[in-house]
Amino acid sequence: MAKQMKVLTEKDLQQVTVQQKIFKVLSQIALYTFLIVMAIIVIFPFYWMIISSLKSLAEYRLSIPTLFPKEIMWGNYLQAFQKAELLKLFKNTIIVGVVSTILSLVITIITAFAFARLEFKGKNLLFSMLLGTMMIPGELFTITNFTTITEFGWYKNPNWFEGYAVLIVPFLVSVFYIYLLKQNFMQIPNELYLAAKVDGTSDFKYLCKVMIPLSLPTLISITILKMMGSWNSYVWPRLVAHKDYYLITNGLRSAFTDAGSGEADIPVQMAAVTIVSIPLFLVFIFLRKYIMKGVSRSGIKG
């Protein structure tokens, strides 16, 4: 009796493992199917953007859309460059992006250094107040900044200095970047700083030789997010910049205004959108690690 029971259990066990294996394979198939279907949905707009940008208008309008262009129309890209004045917009965006990133990095580094390493009265209070401003929606600042830059005479000013300054200066200080870098600076052991002090190294030299190299990954994250920010900024330049100093997104939207009327030359429009998107993709592919690290700590787009 006891022997029989043992045999039964072993058989059962075998059956259970086979069932488990089948279940596991099936669930893996289900997982992959779900993920791949979702991935296709996520990536489809990019595919459609690129494919449409290479079609002729007549082909784009076919009642049964083609999944690949019959004849590749590179001319759409040339037209897009001309229609949206993309070269001028690229130039503006790069100038604003590079200058504001460099200045912003300098300010972020010295401010974060002061908060992380130097002692002064009211440090914690000041830092808490800075963090408090992060809760306020940006639109609230926009209203007064609009008045302020008008007082400065920067509003839609066609001069190159004012034209660029209005896009750069109001956004040089980012409390979030200061916070991010300060956290990073704090991780560097204080002993290093004291040792440097004993050796008679100045604060500034210590900052340049020790702290900056040690927090390079965070600085790279900040650089990318800031560059992406000027690449994607739309509202502020649209409100205050002179037409000659519009950034890439403004030109894109205003050159092809009637998105919903069905009249627009969509292949050319898609070519312009592709041109704008490609640099972002390249940055993403090569610097994914830094972007994801920065983003996972912020939730701020750009």
């Binding site: 991935a39 459609w48 690449w231 997104t249 069905g262 898609m270 959108v273 993403f284 972007i291 983003v295």
Partner: peptide, 22 residues
Amino acid sequence: IFFLPYVTNSIAIGMVFAAMFN
């Protein structure tokens, strides 16, 4: 792939969506 939409310009890709629904 799932992270890709993050690094896009919301105006630009909005135009792609508009074209898809157009």
